[in-house]
């Protein structure tokens, strides 16, 4: 398989990863994720073969590296999203009925993660990388990757559980019968 074919094989999953990685900027309909994929493909076309790196790893490594660069520039936005482990973001993402759709819930939970934690979690959990490959992609040791992964999973679970708990509380309140209005009497 030539380089182009190989890149095309990985492009759909690379887009999935990029979309999940850039959840903080989803208002653009995934365009920022696709921009990252585009740049990663260009880099892979140029450098994948000369570097001798596996094409798949090269694509993901480029994408993570590019996203790191971009995220530094807008880190204050991510800080806002992370504040209170998503409490503020959760409030933003609720629909009128007060419950949260699956996609919004994932977005909020992912946005609550540190950039490195999010990348580590998505590589291993979403993309199915083993620890060794994920560490290569993220250019860090296996131990650092594992530490990021542990924190990411714990935070993710905490945020999701917290939102579910809030939803169930508000749901319970909504399902309670309305208190009887004392000054009205039932007449026949």
């Amino acid at each position: 398989m030539d380089l182009r074919q190989e890149i095309e094989t990985h492009t759909p999953k690379l887009r999935r990863f990029a979309r999940a990685l850039t959840v903080g900027s989803k208002a653009d309909g995934g365009r920022s994720g696709d921009d990252l994929v585009h740049e990663s493909i260009l880099r892979a076309l140029k450098f994948a073969r000369p570097s001798g790196m596996d094409v798949r790893l090269s694509l993901y490594a480029s994408l993570v590296g590019l996203h790191r660069q971009q995220s530094r520039a807008k880190s204050h936005l991510l800080q806002n999203l992370r504040a209170g482990h998503g409490a503020h973001a959760a409030a933003m993402g609720r629909d009128i009925s007060g419950t949260m759709s699956g996609q919004t819930l994932v977005d909020v939970a992912l946005a609550a993660l540190d950039l490195e934690e999010r990348a580590a979690m998505l590589l291993v959990v979403l993309e199915g990388f083993n620890y060794a490959d994920a560490a290569v992609v993220m250019d860090m040791t296996r131990e650092t990757l594992q530490a990021n992964l542990v924190r990411a999973r714990a935070t993710f679970a905490r945020v999701v559980d917290g939102i579910h708990a809030q939803d169930s509380q508000s749901g319970a309140r909504a399902s309670q019968p309305a208190k009887r209005v004392r000054h009205l009497r039932l007449v026949k």
């Binding site: 095309e8 759909p12 887009r15 995934g30 585009h38």
Partner: peptide, 16 residues
């Protein structure tokens, strides 16, 4: 949540 993205048609700008 994200598998739908992988099933989408790749935009022409990304298609080699």
């Amino acid at each position: 949540q994200f598998d739908a993205v992988a099933r989408e048609t790749v935009p022409v700008s990304l298609s080699l």
